[in-house]
Amino acid sequence: MRTTLKRIFIITLTVILLCCSAFPCFAAEEKGIISVTLEDKSKNKINDVTVYLCQVAELNNNGYYPTTAFESSGISISGLINSPDESSAKSVTDYIKSNQIEVLSSASKNGKATFSDLALGIWVVFCDQDSKYTFNPYIVFLPYESGGKLYYEVSSVPKIEDSKPNEISIYVVKKWDDKNNAAKKRPDSVNIELLNGSEVVLAAKLSESNGWSHTFTGVSKDGNYSVREKAVANYKANYSGDITNGFVVTNTYNGEKLPQTGQYWWPIILIAIAGAGFIALGVYEVGVKKNAKKK
């Protein structure tokens, strides 16, 4: 009896352990830490630079899901997972800035900024520009998986470039006002041009793969910039925003008809003919009556 109970206990324990190893669970209360180290090429610590963190996706037992702020952003979470590169991080950062999404922030002290008690998921890290350096944004997965092990404490170092005080970046994002492409007329891509006055400076192709957004980089600080879109069939473009907050190009579906640009003249002729007809008929009827009276 004792042996049987022991066997049942061992089998149950084995099954539980197997289940746990086959389906890794991420308890909702599980938290992580991301630390950001800021050092120059000579390993000198960079202090007083504000580091920002923003959660793009949350992780549960079924995978990654966009956080509320990114639900309608057009940013593809699977795209971030497949290519968590600098350009993806830049797009996410620009979206955060232009939509003023809430972020966590901390100034670097002793060359480091640490964020603890973070929810699991995908985070983007970006920093303010230093007078000497520019820190490129990047994506962090929490927990971070390496060699089959999950790490809940992630140490990271942003790519550092020398600041170019005479250059700026300009963000542009496309929005669609077409009832979620109900008419199925939305194109696969659109072409946006960055203008300085009336001169075309740079151009970019926006599509779903880049979240319908782009950042024009290396743009001279001195200039009066605006964006224009190459005409998109069935849509009209409206422009808003500025170089600081980024430009928004909203394409509104034109509908199934061109604008009605005419005065109606043809009904006048029809009404006049009908009127003349009735008058003729009336004259005839009155005439017939008179004749009948005479007789």
Binding site: A276, I279, E285
Partner: peptide
Amino acid sequence: KRNKGVVFLSIGCILILIA
């Protein structure tokens, strides 16, 4: 019959005025 003629004349005049 006479009223019919007047009605036709009236409608005709109204339509011409609208036009």
